[in-house]
Simulated assay, not measured.
Amino acid sequence: MHRDQPPLRARSAPELVPSLFLDLDQMLDEFTRLPIRARFRFDPDMPAVITVEFLAERGPSLVWLLGRELLRRGVTAMSGTGDVRMWPTLPGGRPASWLLLESEEVEALFEVPTAELAEWLDATYRVVSAEAEMDGLNWDGFLMELLGGPAAASE
């Protein structure tokens, strides 16, 4: 890509893959579940990233950016390291996976129904394949912003 090319601009593509709303259970402790709704969004301009918005009944929502491949793998096997991990629940119940999100401020474990999530993820891969998800990235613009922000471009 050429250095004068503008960085990627996020755009909504509801006609390609609409947002997925799922009812999750947040595990507060071993026996206590808190139902929570989550919105999964896919942007074909940034296909490697899925935006997950945890919709609170009261107060602000919480947004996490998760790797699309991490979610896809987490439906059937242990996936992720560090702050985000996902793995299937024990067999016998409804098809679900555990999603663990950790940061310095918060640790949250969610039970995610996987049938709808897997189907929705498949739709995202039909729009942008795993092999093509890095093709549209403006690496020069990304590195400029990462290393020095907008001022670096004017030097």
Rank of each mutant, 00 (worst) to 15 (best):
R3C: 04
V52A: 13
G74Q: 09
G149E: 03
L90A: 15
W120G: 05
D25K: 04
G136L: 03
F40M: 02
R37Q: 13
V17I: 05
M46T: 10
D29W: 04
E116L: 05
L70Q: 12
T81W: 01
V52E: 05
G92S: 09
G67Y: 03
T81K: 11
L28V: 12
I50G: 04
F21E: 10
T114S: 11
G82A: 02
S19M: 01
W64Y: 12
P14L: 06
A48G: 12
P91V: 06
M46Y: 09
F40Y: 11
L55D: 01
A48N: 05
P88Q: 09
A38Y: 01
E131Q: 14
A48R: 06
T51D: 14
T114F: 01
R85S: 07
R3F: 08
V63Q: 15
G148C: 03
A77N: 08
E105W: 04
A123V: 01
E155I: 08
F31Y: 11
S12T: 12
W64E: 08
G74F: 05
L100T: 09
F42T: 04
D122L: 08
E102D: 13
S61D: 15
L90N: 13
D122N: 10
A130N: 04
T51N: 11
P150S: 13
S154Y: 06
L70Y: 06
T51C: 06
R11M: 12
A96G: 03
P91D: 14
T32V: 07
E131V: 08
L90V: 09
G149N: 03
E133V: 02
L34D: 07
R85P: 00
V106F: 13
M134A: 15
V49C: 10
H2F: 09
R33Q: 10
T32Q: 10
A152T: 02
L101Y: 07
P35R: 00
T76L: 05
E116V: 00
P47H: 04
W139G: 01
G148K: 04
R94H: 09
A115M: 03
E107H: 08
E57Q: 11
E69L: 09
T76S: 12
L100N: 10
S154V: 10
A108F: 01
A56E: 14
L65E: 15
I50V: 15
D135R: 14
E111N: 03
A152V: 02
V84F: 09
R85K: 13
P7C: 02
